[in-house]
């Protein structure tokens, strides 16, 4: 067991789970999606991206790319939330909510790719 791999795996899987927690629920219902969780998901995803910087292997390059995609989509979703927040009294309208949640869903896909690569690489090396 290697502490470095533990920290690395922790952040990558955590960013996937937070992303999932935000996306889960009815897609157009603002009360099912918490803006705080979206913000934390962005934070964790950024940390995971930072940990991936500087890995010179092929797998490292792919992991970094997947992470950057997730960051891009999550941050776009958060900006849209700011823009649509004044739609109604309780937050974004259902139509705007659909856009935000589907963007986060795209990020979820990128995060799944990240985790699959991580698990595959670990299984391949068998150490």
């Amino acid at each position: 067991m290697n502490l470095e791999r533990v920290i690395f795996g922790f952040f990558i899987i955590l960013s996937l789970t937070f992303n999932f927690v935000f996306v889960v629920g009815e897609i157009d219902n603002p009360s099912h999606h918490n803006v705080w969780i979206l913000t934390i998901a962005i934070l964790v995803s950024l940390i995971a991206t930072g940990l991936k910087l500087g890995d010179r292997s092929q797998v490292g390059a792919l992991l970094l790319a997947a992470s950057l995609v997730a960051d891009l989509l999550l941050i776009t979703a958060r900006i849209l939330w700011v823009v649509y927040e004044s739609d109604t009294e309780i937050g974004p309208s259902p139509e705007s909510m659909v856009t935000i949640v589907s963007l986060a869903g795209g990020a979820l896909l990128a995060n799944i790719v990240s985790v699959v690569i991580l698990v595959g690489d670990t299984l391949m090396s068998r150490r």
Binding site: N2, E4, F8, G50, L51, K52, L53, G54, D55, Q58
Partner: peptide, 24 residues
């Protein structure tokens, strides 16, 4: 062709990957 694997084979230790872990 993989510097991490080669490092492990020579030293028996995993080399830190990424700037953050290198710093640590």
């Amino acid at each position: 062709n993989n510097s991490y694997t080669l490092h492990y084979l020579i030293t028996g230790e995993e080399k830190a990957r990424g700037y953050f872990f290198l710093l640590l």
